[in-house]
Structure formats: structure tokens, C-alpha cells
Nucleic acid binder design. Structure first.
Length: 337
DNA sequence: ATCATATCCACATGTCACGA
DNA sequence: TCGTGACATGTGGATATGAT
């Protein structure tokens, strides 16, 4: 980093003023003549010049970087959302990615460092937790960032005082329970994810509620991590019990995939011996054998929407915006009777 | 020691003068 | 009239310098 090539170097090499060089490289409203333009571009190419993005951000008074914080990029739920958000951000700037690896306290660290790096906005993807202390600290950090001109959008529960894309987890799970009882399933168990994760909790509650409306109940709720291995482990724990339920609801798809693997390892057939359903509708499910029943969330739309909320100028009256996203039950082979 | 002011970074942009 | 250069100003924050 000893001697970076600056715009001044390019201007000197091309024999033009700094202003002209600037107008060429950033494509300003004022058009520079073709001859000068070519001289500047040639000088920039010869010197290997690239604009200093930090200096540009300062001079322009705005940065083009949007931060995106997810729990785990290997989880299709997050990668689909991230890819969709990127399509919205890309024409305007760049994406800075942060991964919490399911450690909520890392969210706070990312908000702080992204703010220090002058990002224009931050998209936080992931469930809130029951840790009200952390939620409060995060909300405060977001408020400080926003008061400094930053923008924040959240995909998850509406608890941070920011624009929010809010999946209707409870009603989605409720409708799933209703659909499964409608298929004739009679005994149910739930692979419930972590107890402190609101998304997991809402889905469990919604499912139990939906069963109750049909005069049924979940016989067991087994809690585990919100990932594939968590589903695998929880399913094994469930199958170690004396009574095997006819239908298992895993609170997200990757857990359901783990649960299917556990069933298979025990020689159980899905759905003949045990039915399994998930939640989210990650893309790979369509190629799973058997195909998995789930609650479809429009993940790409959610990612695009969250990115738009961060980039839009319009935030009418300073009121935060909450976009509710409805889940849609998709019945596939894994719960067939 | 504490505080206020100046300078610097790399750039964007507007005003104005000037040559063709 | 067009396109340019010179110049000034501003941008946020870190760091240096000077004043008290």
C-alpha cells in the first residue's frame, strides 16, 4: 500500500486537470471530449489505476456498499436470499457479507464493523432470539447507524425497529398442520429447533395450534440445532422412543432433510413408514427422493425486497415498513398416504 | 494535561475564465 | 458556443500541531 496510483497521477500522465480526469473516470454529467477522454483512459490503463472507493465514498457523501448478515451461507435458505439480494444491490454497488454461524452476538459485531466501514445499508437475515438483552443492544446499534444516515432492513421478526420482511411462520405452520390432518395423518411429532429461536418457536406454536383446531396434538417436541445435523440428531432421539409417530414436522427444510436421512438409516421408508414435512421450500427439495412436503416461502422475493428496502429513498414519514410474507403449503410425496 | 484548531487523505463538483 | 483548465470548496474522520 506504499504508493497507490491516484487520480492525480492519471491526470498528470494524461496532461489534463484533475477535474477532467475525474469526469472521465466517473462518467459525470459533464461530457468530456473524445480526445481527452481517450487520453485519460489510456493513462489510467497504463498506470493500472483503480479509484479509491473509500475516498469516493467520502467525496460523494455516500457509499455504494451494502452489508448482508446471514447465519450460514451453506444453508440454502440463506444462500437463496443472499443471491437474490445481490441481484438488487449489484447494479448500484457491492455487497459485503457477514456470517454469524448461528451465534447471534456476532450480529452486533457485524453491525458495528460494517458501520465503521461506511456501508450504505445493512440487511440482517435471521431469526430473533429470546435473548432480550441482545435484541436491545442490537436495536440500539441499528438506531445509531440509522440516525447517521444508514439504512437497515431485517428478514425475521419485527423486533429491531427497522424495516422488516416478516415471514408468517405461525400461520404457515398452522395451515400445514391443517393440511396434514386433512390428508388423514393422526399422530404427530415436531422437531422443534432451538428453544431460544423465535422462528423455530413460532413454527412449533403455529403447528401445535393448527393441530389443536383439528382436535389433534403433537405427542412429542424434540429440540435441536436449526441445521441438517440437528434434524438428524433430533429424529434419532425421536425414533429411540417407544412410540413412533405417523407424521413428523421439522421446523425447517434442512432439518427435515437430516430427519429423512435418519429415518433411512434405520430402515424406515418415507412416507410409507413415517411421513415428514419441512418449512421454507429451499430449491433442492424438488430433486429430493421422496420430494418433501413443506411451507413455501418466496425466498428470492424476500431477498430482493429486503435489499430494496435498504436502497429505496422512499421511507414515507420516517415510519418503518413491515412487509408480511405469507407461507404456502406445498404437499409433496413425503407426506403421501 | 487538556482543548481547540489545522492539516491531510483522494476525490467530486460547481464557478468562472479562457482559447479556438 | 463549446470544451477545457484553474481554482475553490466540501466530504468524515484521523492525526498533528498549537494554544491555554
Amino acid at each position: 500500500m506504499g504508493s497507490q496510483i491516484t487520480l492525480a497521477d492519471v491526470a498528470e500522465r494524461a496532461g489534463v486537470s484533475l477535474a477532467t480526469a475525474s469526469r472521465v473516470v466517473n462518467g459525470s454529467e459533464r461530457v468530456v471530449g473524445k480526445r481527452f477522454r481517450e487520453r485519460v483512459l489510456a493513462a489510467a490503463a497504463e498506470l493500472g489505476y483503480t479509484a479509491n472507493a473509500f475516498a469516493q465514498a467520502v467525496a460523494r457523501g455516500r457509499s455504494d456498499v451494502v452489508g448482508l448478515v446471514v447465519a450460514d451461507i451453506q444453508d440454502p435458505y440463506f444462500s437463496v436470499i443472499a443471491a437474490a439480494a445481490l441481484t438488487v444491490v449489484e447494479p448500484h454497488g457491492e455487497l459485503m457479507l457477514g456470517t454469524t454461524l448461528h451465534r447471534p452476538e456476532q450480529e452486533l459485531r457485524y453491525v458495528t464493523t460494517m458501520r465503521a466501514r461506511q456501508v450504505r445499508g445493512i440487511v440482517l437475515v435471521g431469526s430473533r432470539t429470546t435473548d432480550t438483552g441482545h435484541t436491545k443492544r442490537l436495536a440500539e446499534a441499528i438506531a445509531e447507524f440509522v440516525s447517521g444516515g444508514g439504512r437497515v432492513a431485517v428478514i425475521g421478526q419485527d423486533k429491531l425497529g427497522a424495516d422488516t420482511v416478516l415471514p408468517q411462520n405461525r400461520s404457515g405452520a398452522r395451515e400445514l398442520a391443517s393440511a396434514l390432518t386433512g390428508l388423514g395423518h393422526r399422530s404427530f411429532a415436531v422437531l422443534g429447533g432451538p428453544k431460544n429461536l423465535l422462528t423455530a418457536r413460532d413454527r412449533v406454536d403455529g403447528f401445535v395450534d393448527g393441530l389443536a383446531k383439528r382436535g389433534r396434538r403433537a405427542e412429542v417436541v424434540v429440540h435441536s440445532e436449526f441445521v441438517r445435523d440437528g434434524g438428524y440428531r433430533a429424529m434419532n432421539e425421536l425414533l429411540d422412543r417407544p412410540r413412533r409417530p405417523g407424521c413428523v414436522f421439522a421446523v425447517n427444510d434442512v432439518m427435515a432433510i437430516g430427519a429423512m436421512a435418519a429415518a433411512r438409516d434405520r430402515g424406515l421408508r418415507v412416507p410409507e413408514d413415517i411421513a415428514i414435512a419441512g418449512f421454507d421450500d429451499i430449491p433442492s427439495l424438488r430433486d429430493l427422493a421422496p420430494t418433501l412436503t413443506t411451507v413455501r416461502l418466496p425466498l428470492e422475493e424476500m431477498g430482493r425486497k429486503a435489499a430494496s428496502l435498504v436502497l429505496d429513498d422512499a421511507r414515507e414519514g420516517g415510519r418503518k415498513r413491515v412487509v408480511r410474507i405469507k407461507g404456502e403449503v406445498v404437499l409433496r410425496d413425503s407426506t403421501r398416504r
